[in-house]
Each structure stands twice: as structure tokens, then as C-alpha cells.
């Protein structure tokens, strides 16, 4: 009897020790993305001094703009355990519509700020519709957003019918090249949206609900969280940030076409995963997103600077991403990786 008791005590001790070890590992893993960012920065700077030249730092600030805006929006979606694949289509639709509503080469429209805000609001509405379809019709988010991405990409093409509009407004140029305290205006906009994202996630009941849903939807529901409303809002936020990213891209490129959204989803999601945001929801946050975006942008920029042969660049990039994700993703709760 006593030996049984001792055995049980020994097992309990081992279990406690295991939990302690895992917790320690978890704590370390939280800091992993930051450690990775710092070590990559040092490594890149040592390898090539041009990496930290003032001109290239400005570049990095420009190049992180769109990924940061997109990543801020999609963080909310991933935290609830959903996914938004419509981001590229929505971005293309916003950019194409904005280019046609402000002064451009294709028509005589010149709606100024309204021409920018209405399409962005429209995107938020599209996001809300996506959220409603997902929650009310109970269709998996990946398929709803995939379909919505296809619809919005199609609509984007329809807006300009083959020949995209080139924007002619003077302020677009000022906005795309101007800076304040050495930081480009566009980056300030991205930082502003990121800050708003932080406030929303950390200082409001809505933010708590997002985490609660991602962690355990049933428990969140039982405790009175209005799941459908929160999820709808989350998709609206993501589509709204995609719309803003479309606007930024339009200002940068001076042209509004559906293709501006292409290849934007993968960097945004990769940045989040590298930063430690969990695809299964409930884990991660804005800091992780920010660090992930910085790592991804630095990596892209560095590979261009050192002139990795174009034929190897994608492979090298893929290998580095896998290493980065392996170092930063938490696996403690997972029994199976899907």
C-alpha cells in the first residue's frame, strides 16, 4: 500500500518536473523571435555593411509598410483560430477602385479623400459579409474567404477592364516619398494602424474575446461571449486593413490593378508564424506580429543586397523560413501537427 503511494508520488513529481521544463521552454520560446531578429540583424550587418546604411534602413521602413498593415489585420483572424485567404483579392479591389475614384488617367473622377475612404469602408463591409457567411452559414473560414478572394479579385478586374488607371494626384507622390523624423509617411501610417491594433487587442473587451475564442470557443461561448459578432468584426478588421494596404500600394506604384494584391498573403502569414503567432488560434499577439514582419522584411532585403543567384533565392528563402519557424513555433500543446 505504502509502495503504491510512493510510486504515485514519484509519478506526480516527474509530471511536475515535466510541466516545469515545458513552461521554461515556453518562456524561452516567447523570446525566441526577438532573439532571432537580433541575431539575424547582427549577422546581416556583419556580412554586409550596406545592410545598416541609412539609405537601406529607409528602404526597410518602406518595405515593411504593406506587410505590417496586412499582418496587423490578419493577426486578429488567426488569433480566433480562423484564416483569411481573401486578403489579396480585397487589396487588389481597394487599390483598383481608389485609383479610379481619385484623379486618374482613365476617367474624370476626382473625389479626393472620399475616393479613398469609401473603397476602404467598402472593404470593411465585404469583410463583415465574409464573417457573417462564416458564422451564420457555418462554413469554414478558409473556404468562405477563398471564395470571397476570388469574387473581389474578379470585381477588381471588372472595375478597370484590362487597362488599369494611373493616378495623377500630386499628394500621392508627396505621400509616397515624404518623411517625418526620417521615417517615411507611409511607415507612419502603418505604425499608426499597428498601434490601433495593439490598443484594440490589449485594452478592450473585444481583444479579450478574440483570445478567448481562439483558446477555447466553447468555453468563451459558455461565459457569454458573443462569438458571431466578434468573428464578424475580426473579418471586417482584416478586410479593412487589406483595403488600407491596397491604398498604400496604389500610392507607392501610382497604378491601381488587381495584381497588386498577388503574393501578399504568404509573406503576411509567414511573418506571423515566424513571430510565433499560432495558426490554431489563441496564441501570439501584436509584438510577435511586429517582430515577424521585421524578420521577413530583413530577410527579403538582405537576399537582394547580397545578390543571391535568382535561381537559388526562393529555395534559400524557404530554407531560412523553415529554420525560423522551427525555432519559434510552440509545439508543447500539440500532439499532432496538421
Amino acid at each position: 500500500m505504502e509502495r503504491d503511494h510512493e510510486k504515485r508520488a514519484a509519478i506526480a513529481d516527474q509530471f511536475k518536473e515535466k510541466i516545469r521544463r515545458e513552461t521554461r521552454g515556453e518562456r524561452l520560446r516567447v523570446y525566441m523571435p526577438i532573439i532571432l531578429l537580433l541575431s539575424l540583424s547582427v549577422l546581416f550587418a556583419v556580412y554586409d555593411s550596406r545592410f545598416f546604411s541609412p539609405a537601406n534602413i529607409t528602404n526597410l521602413l518602406y518595405q515593411m509598410t504593406i506587410p505590417l498593415i496586412l499582418a496587423t489585420g490578419i493577426t486578429f483572424v488567426l488569433l480566433t483560430g480562423c484564416i483569411d485567404l481573401s486578403l489579396e483579392g480585397v487589396m487588389g479591389l481597394a487599390g483598383s477602385s481608389i485609383a479610379l475614384l481619385i484623379l486618374n488617367t482613365k476617367n474624370s473622377n476626382d473625389f479626393g479623400a472620399i475616393g479613398v475612404l469609401v473603397p476602404i469602408a467598402g472593404c470593411a463591409l465585404i469583410g463583415a459579409v465574409t464573417g457573417l457567411i462564416h458564422t451564420k452559414l457555418r462554413i469554414a473560414s478558409f473556404i468562405v474567404t477563398f471564395a470571397m478572394g476570388s469574387i473581389t479579385a474578379g470585381l477588381a478586374v471588372l472595375t478597370y477592364r484590362g487597362v488599369p488607371a494611373v493616378i495623377k494626384v500630386g499628394w500621392a507622390n508627396d505621400l509616397s516619398v515624404g518623411s517625418f523624423w526620417g521615417v517615411p509617411y507611409l511607415t507612419w501610417i502603418a505604425l499608426g494602424i499597428f498601434a490601433a491594433g495593439c490598443v484594440l487587442l490589449y485594452c478592450t473587451a473585444f481583444g479579450c474575446a478574440v483570445y478567448a475564442i481562439g483558446d477555447n470557443e466553447l468555453a468563451a461561448k459558455a461565459s457569454g461571449t458573443h462569438i458571431d459578432a466578434v468573428k464578424t468584426a475580426v473579418f471586417a478588421i482584416c478586410a479593412c486593413t487589406s483595403g488600407i494596404a491596397g491604398f498604400i500600394s496604389c500610392v507607392r506604384l501610382k497604378i491601381g490593378q488587381a495584381a497588386m494584391g498577388s503574393d501578399q498573403l504568404f509573406p503576411a502569414i509567414t511573418a506571423l508564424v515566424i513571430g510565433g503567432v499560432s495558426l490554431s488560434g489563441g496564441k501570439g499577439g501584436m509584438l510577435q506580429t511586429f517582430v515577424g514582419v521585421l524578420i521577413y522584411t530583413e530577410l527579403q532585403n538582405f537576399l537582394t543586397i547580397i545578390g543571391v543567384d535568382a535561381y537559388y533565392k526562393k529555395a534559400v528563402q524557404g530554407v531560412i523560413i523553415i529554420i525560423a519557424v522551427a525555432m519559434t513555433v510552440s509545439r508543447s500543446r500539440k500532439t499532432i501537427s496538421k
Binding site: R50, F51, N56, T58, Q300, N301
Partner: peptide, 9 residues
């Protein structure tokens, strides 16, 4: 983005 990086480096 690539041209920006080229011009800077």
C-alpha cells in the same frame, strides 16, 4: 522593392 534596395546598396 528590389530597385529601392539596389539604389541604396
Amino acid at each position: 522593392a528590389i530597385t529601392e534596395t539596389w539604389l541604396a546598396t
